[in-house]
Design a protein around this nucleic acid. Structure first.
Length: 796
DNA sequence: CTCTCCCT
């Protein structure tokens, strides 16, 4: 052990860490960057333990450098006492094996007893990938059932109560201060109305001035767009130094010019995405400019699509970013926000915001899906989990009671998304190579194609023609072919099979062109619309779509009409009713999922009665009673019922409020699809009368009659629309009426009119009117309407 | 009128 090692903060604590892990059997080691935990702790433990130790890392690169580092401390290379296992490396080690999270998941799934292994160290656990969450849950489960002696050590840079939620509150923990050079933080929030790129350039010039020529400036931006705009601004602002862009889609060779930089190089500004936060380390960086923004994918269980969002980075992410300025010497970090601004303490973990189909399948394989009996640091969201379970059942990978099937087990072994696994499993023999190449591309390797928005057929043709250029994809292809027991020959890939295969994996992403301008607009079998930013064919299958405002098609393959016709032959006829006001017309069509394909108008009589009835119900529910063209009869009937409902107990269920809310129940059955308006006036009346019932209707006529009867068989409609029932009558019509009529025991309000129909007076006591006011009224009326009869004694 | 990032 050299001095450099002895000076690491974790070094003097190694005995304590080992003895606590051995005594208490579980341990959390919290130590931030530069403490030396990754290299020293596994070695120290291996000296105290006879069996093998597994160390997990979140990334292949991290696993590789961890294995090399540990091996070099004992004067070895990986392959002796220290091993390294990732998707691409398989170097066994006698004492310690460094593996990626994904590899460990396969190890514990295939041997839950972890025979030969005495301790498992989960490093960088704070990153909280789905596979590390699963690994820990499985470890704890296996330990409690069959491996009580197993030692579990969680190593994490941050371990906050809120992200663990009491999950491991009974675990002992050791805290070691990290050690890196101090980084001073400068908060420089946006100025008024400042564009992001202008603000970032402002901070970059401050950084360049403060560094005075010494060291590089690393700038964190959410994505490529912002990086390019900032580069442009810098150049136009007369920045003469070097500018590098760093982005995940760049190949290692494109990245190497940046990664290899030292303090001796000419000063540069490096514009980067999150790659430089954890994956890529640049030793020449002395200042960090942090936009405080991140771009991320969120999974939307509703549509099964991903949503790209630009959000504020978390506090722990900001700490990590700033730390990049202090790797070799003290540094400065400029933050483009105010110190007072709230930041989320941690990034939202994968389990909370991703597609959970893989997660659910792993649980099914472990046997823990049916009751979700395992504890996770955070519980998976119910909606995403049930969406995943539905998908897996549909694919036949789990049964209705959520146990894994044989084909489910096989699907796990293929190491691709369950949809793609199913595409391979269900393909015909001659389609297998094509299915495998599609799965390889869609599962992982499309990133090397950068900007998509293209036809996957073209991408595949390019791969077949330029095998050398795509050696990584080709080797993945060969490996997966071998796993399913076929020859991995690219020559067996058939472009014509692509769309059919994609449909089997993405039946919800079939699209039909609905219109095109500069772009092409599709309706998807998912029921939603999506846009392709180019011209496109009539029918497509679009395995990659993404939403941000509208849905965008990133990748597609044309579906030939014959294939669509094939689907349609099997598809049932669907009838659809369309409304124009209360008139309707019918269409028959065929559907692929939620996407209508063929559509013809047809007669309403072609549609079965149940569909019509349901449609009437739905329309009525949506529009309500008030939207119907009500005649005087119906309107008055509703008003009468309302009037009586407040006055007579047995009518209390027929207030207009209740009539309105129950309209579907009493009216829908009376729909008449042969008529112009499906609820003609007379039907509304009969429906409402039937709803009230014969006996009650008879009593209603007594309590609140429709009409008041007058002499010579004449009658007048009573108005029930106000608080008091009223009727409007010419004075002449009332001659001989001496008792004011009653409605519900209350006197009817009489609006008395002149022969011309003008209001003269209002009374609720006609007898009194004749006795008193009539004398004056008569004088005036006689003068104005001399031809009419104005008897002195109107009671006769 | 787009293009965070890992992993079996």
């Amino acid at each position: 052990m050299n001095d450099e090692v002895r000076n690491l903060p974790v070094y003097p604590r190694l005995d304590e860490i080992c003895s606590r892990l051995l005594e208490e059997s579980n341990l959390i080691l919290q130590a931030s960057a530069g403490a030396g935990k990754t290299s020293l702790v596994p070695l120290a433990i291996s000296e105290k333990i006879s069996g093998k130790i597994i160390v997990t890392q979140p990334r292949r690169l991290a696993a590789r450098s961890c294995a090399e580092r540990i091996a070099s401390l004992i004067g070895e290379k990986p392959g002796g006492r220290v091993g390294l296992i990732t998707r691409y490396d398989k170097i066994r080690g006698e004492k310690i094996e460094v593996v990626t999270d994904g590899v460990f998941l396969r190890m514990i799934q295939s041997d839950p007893s972890l025979s030969g292994i005495d301790a498992v160290i989960l490093d960088e656990f704070h990153e909280r990938s789905i596979s590390s969450d699963l690994s820990l849950a499985f470890l704890i489960d296996a330990k409690s059932l069959i491996r009580n002696d197993l030692k579990i050590l969680i190593m994490s840079a941050t371990l906050s109560a809120d992200s663990f939620n009491g999950y491991l509150s009974d675990w002992p923990s050791v805290n070691v201060e990290g050690r890196s050079f101090p980084v001073s933080l400068k908060y420089m929030p946006p100025q008024k109305n400042e564009y992001l790129e202008d603000g970032i350039c402002r901070l970059i010039s401050l950084a360049l001035r403060d560094l005075d020529g010494e060291g590089d400036v690393l700038v964190f931006l959410p994505g490529l767009k912002e990086m390019k705009r900032t580069e442009e601004k810098l150049r136009s602002g007369n920045f003469k130094g070097e500018i590098f862009l760093l982005h995940g889609s760049m190949s290692p060779s494109e990245q190497s010019a940046v990664v290899r930089r030292t303090m001796n190089d000419k000063q540069a500004v490096i514009l980067s995405t999150n790659v430089a936060e954890t994956s890529i380390t640049i030793n020449s960086v002395r200042a960090v400019v942090d936009s405080g923004l991140v771009r991320k994918l969120r999974y939307d269980p509703q549509s099964g699509m991903n949503h790209r969002i630009t959000i504020e980075s978390s506090a722990s992410s900001s700490t990590q970013r700033s730390g990049r300025a202090g790797r070799v010497a003290p540094g400065i970090a400029y933050r483009y926000w105010d110190e007072k601004d709230y930041r989320m303490p941690h990034d939202v973990s994968e389990i909370l915001c991703s597609d959970l189909s893989g997660f659910a399948l792993e649980n099914a394989l472990w046997g823990s899906l049916s009751d979700m009996s395992l504890n996770f640091p955070e519980n998976p969201p119910v909606s995403a989990l049930s969406e995943a379970v539905t998908l897996l059942r549909g694919l036949g990978f789990i049964t209705d009671d959520d146990t894994i099937t044989e084909s489910g087990k096989f699907a796990v072994s293929l190491s691709v998304h369950p949809r793609l696994a199913s595409m391979i499993v269900n393909s015909e023999e001659r389609e297998k190579q094509t299915a495998v190449l599609l799965a390889v591309l869609l599962n992982d390797d499309l990133r090397s194609f950068g900007n998509l928005s293209s036809d996957i057929d073209i991408i595949i043709e390019d791969i077949i023609k330029n095998k050398n250029k795509y050696s990584r994809i080709v080797s993945e292809f060969e490996k997966l072919c071998e796993r399913i027991g076929i020859k991995g020959e690219l020559s067996k890939v058939v472009i014509a099979f692509i769309s059919k295969l994609l449909i089997s994996a993405y039946p919800d992403r079939i699209g039909r062109k609905i219109r095109s301008d500069k772009n092409t607009h599709y309706i998807l079998s998912l029921g939603k619309q999506a846009v392709l930013y180019s011209s496109g064919p009539q029918y497509i299958v679009a395995p990659l779509t993404e939403t941000s405002g509208g849905n965008r098609i990133l990748l597609f393959s044309e579906i030939k009409k014959e294939l669509i016709d094939g689907f349609l032959r099997g598809a049932p006829l669907i009838y659809e009713i369309r409304w124009s006001g209360w008139q309707c017309s019918a269409f028959r069509k065929k559907m692929i999922g939620m996407m209508p394909v063929e559509e013809y108008p047809c007669a309403l009589s072609d549609v079965d009665y149940l569909t019509l009835k349901k449609e009437a119900y739905r329309k009525l529910k949506k529009e309500g009673l008030n939207s119907l063209p009500l005649g005087d009869d119906s309107r008055q009937l509703i008003e009468r019922l309302d009037y009586v409902s407040g006055r007579v107990e047995e009518f209390s269920d027929f207030s207009s409020e209740k009539i309105k809310t129950t309209v579907c129940e009493w009216l829908a059955d009376y729909a008449d699809f042969k008529s112009n308006s499906i609820f003609p006036q007379e039907n509304i009346n009969s429906a409402l009368s039937a709803h009230v019932g014969y006996e009650l209707m008879k009593r209603l006529d007594k309590y609140a009659p429709e009409f008041i009867s007058l002499k010579e068989g004449k009658r007048k409609r009573i108005d029930y629309s106000s608080a008091k029932a009223s009727v409007s009558l010419r004075i002449q019509e009332l001659f001989g009426v001496n008792e004011n009529p009653l409605v519900c025991g209350e006197p009817l309000v009489m609006n008395l009119l002149s022969p011309a129909g003008r209001p003269v007076q209002v009374t609720s006591d006609i007898k009194n009117f004749w006795k008193n006011s009539y004398i004056e009224v008569r004088k005036e009326m006689k003068g104005r309407y001399p031809k009419h009869n104005w008897p002195e004694d109107p009671s006769l």
